[in-house]
Design a protein around this nucleic acid. Structure first.
Lengths: 165, 165
DNA sequence: TATTGTTATACTCTATAACTATA
DNA sequence: TATAGTTATAGAGTATAACAATA
């Protein structure tokens, strides 16, 4: 096995485990309970995306960042809006579009949730050397970016099937 | 913000993005198409887990490693067995248990799938310095392990709610 | 009596198709 | 005619509850 594929070959099982780990409903339930909020997971993910962006986003942009499809976002925005956790404001640059903004109550809920989850992460990584934590964030940031680029290209059909012809 | 939580605070959005990225059905469909196989995602995940273990596993152990619940595994084992991709052999140490083993056709299907996906990873990481790839695998391995430990403890109620009382 | 696994059922999450309104 | 978003519907994925068999 050549050195280039050597390190990446071991990646798949770990990424799959990470995926299923983060997908555990039980874990999310614990998080929202600790945070003292009531909200389903996709809705909370929308709030986290808005919070991370630090400015209002279009519906389509939220969908893109979540790697899901438009209608899925719309559905959850409806219930989020009913609870006044987000608001839809017209995009001044395009009357078809809406900008989705966190309301103060929405911001509070995200803050409480991320505080709990970040606390878990901090605890899990408490024994790590400082440099490893920094390195992890750097590499994970780049991994996410590069995989997104790669997968977008694959999904768009830009990249022909690997090893086929 | 203290330096300990500094690096971990940025983790959540990236891990969420990684989760949704790996959850994209479209991506999986492309992978199985490139690999020339027909199998749904949870079933393939079972095969990957068996392949990574390199020896037969009990049903419960597969469920644990997938972070899912027993009946979910059973359901997919039934169809996998019908297609002769796995076989159930009695566990000599416990007559209640069954050991799940890959059959040669099952092994071939996993191999074709992992080859395709690993090819994607290799392509996505092609521009990385060798050392970064090695570091990523090391840190990701430890992250997965430590998060699993932490989350298992949380789910079991061993760890009281953070910041609550 | 506790544990391993299975069957049957219900719920959560996400996608596809059809439609409206603005560019 | 193409794009942003919404509504309605269908499907994939996972969990809970009830049960059977062995420890």
């Amino acid at each position: 096995m050549d050195p280039l594929s050597d390190a990446t070959t071991g990646l798949l099982p770990h990424l799959l485990q990470l995926r299923t780990l983060l997908n555990r409903g039980q874990l999310y339930e614990q998080a929202v309970q600790d945070a003292g909020v009531t909200l389903d997971r996709p809705a909370m993910t929308i709030l986290v995306v808005l919070d991370a962006a630090e400015h209002p986003l279009r519906v389509g942009e939220i969908a893109t960042r979540m790697h899901v499809v438009g209608p899925h976002v719309t559905r959850h925005l409806n219930s989020l809006e009913k609870r006044a956790l987000i608001k839809r404001v017209p995009d001044p640059e395009d009357q078809r579009a809406r900008l989705i903004a966190l309301t103060p109550p929405g911001q509070r809920i995200v803050d409480r949730y991320t505080t709990v989850v970040n606390g878990w992460f901090t605890a899990a990584l408490a024994q790590w050397p400082h440099q490893d934590r920094t390195e992890l964030l750097r590499l994970l940031t780049r991994l996410t970016r590069d995989l997104t680029t790669q997968f977008d290209a694959i999904a768009a059909g830009t990249i022909p099937a690997q090893g086929e012809d």
